Simulated scan of single mutants.
Amino acid sequence: MRKIKTALLSYGMSGKVFHAPFLSDHPGFELLGSWERSHKHIHADYPETKSYATPEALLEDHPDLVVVNTPVATHFEYAKKMLLAGKHVLVEKSFTATVAEAKELQLIAKEKGLKLAVFHNRRWDSDFLTVKDVVSKNMLGDIVEAEFHFDRYNPTLSPKLHKETVNSGSGVLKDLGSHLIDQALFLFGMPNAVFSDIRITRPKSLVDDCFDLLLYYENLRVRLKAGFFVREMVPSFVVHGKNGSFLKPRGDVQEEDLKLGKHVSARDWGTEPRSKEGLLHTEFDGKIIREFLPTLHGNYYDFFAALYESITEDKPEPVTAQDGVNVMIIIEAAIKSSETGAIVNV
């Protein structure tokens, strides 16, 4: 099996939790190491890896793939640097800070014949996979309304300064919001227009931490919402069709299991507790159904498996640069809508 030599640009929470475990487990990737600015941790977790002092030192080991998992405001700078160095690139969400940056990266990758993927891993969450399955099997009939939430109760500011200082990549819309937008676009495609209300609700917060976003389709409305003052959770996925409804709480366990150090090849990987099953109430095949639906297994490994095939077999990236561009188009339209109080065509 061909080995894809891979390096990370950060070994904080993103590198340690979401990338390194899968890159080290997949037999097609060789994890070279990570650029680490202050704390040096990767070698302790993966003794065969290196801690690089600079991106230039990282490039001296000739990686095939570089994961740009630095703060959002720096994604464009580092992704462009790696693409111009002839490397395939995986960029954390959100893809960039602006549509213009996203399109420039897309153009460079195309001109140089390189793979450029965006890490919208939440497509492989167990809860979303189950929602997707219900919709794709037409269990609800024609969809008329959907509402996706990524809510938390966390009134305190993050200790990560780049998340709480005003910069081109900060704020919940470009953080959790990018996941919700990508999921909506993956299911329903690009909308015709956007309306949004983006706010600051936490004391002393300088960046947006609450948004309500409405996507307008010809015969469908999709509402996306996130906030930090939700102590009692509502269903994170609500989908209504002409034949019925599906209500699903957020239940994917992968992030928490990764934080606890659970191995990604565990037999029960990505298995939600049954208490998180979604409620399906619909008419399907001539029968009225009201029951809790078993949840599909989530697995971020599938993203990396598809990324490997993208590089080695020239298949499409699991989340393409165009997907990333589309998310940025919605984010920019949402910001404009919130500033003007008007519906913005996209």
Rank of each mutant, 00 (worst) to 15 (best):
W124G: 02
H263D: 15
K137Q: 15
A20D: 08
Q322N: 09
K287G: 02
A100I: 02
A100C: 03
D208E: 13
T70Y: 03
V68S: 05
I289A: 04
A44V: 05
S34T: 08
P316Q: 09
V66A: 12
T201I: 11
K5A: 13
I331C: 01
F237L: 00
A146P: 02
V99C: 10
L140V: 00
S236W: 09
D323A: 10
V68A: 11
E339P: 00
D45S: 10
S34F: 06
I289V: 11
D252A: 01
K204Q: 15
L293C: 08
T320W: 08
H19C: 14
H41T: 14
E147W: 07
F284D: 02
D45N: 11
N138Y: 03
I330P: 08
A305R: 13
H39N: 14
D252W: 02
N154L: 15
D175K: 12
T96E: 08
A73F: 13
S34A: 15
D133I: 00
E164W: 09
G227P: 01
E272D: 06
V319F: 07
L114M: 09
F284Y: 15
Y46K: 07
Y78W: 15
H39V: 12
F148Q: 02
M82C: 14
H179L: 07
G278E: 06
S51G: 04
L58D: 10
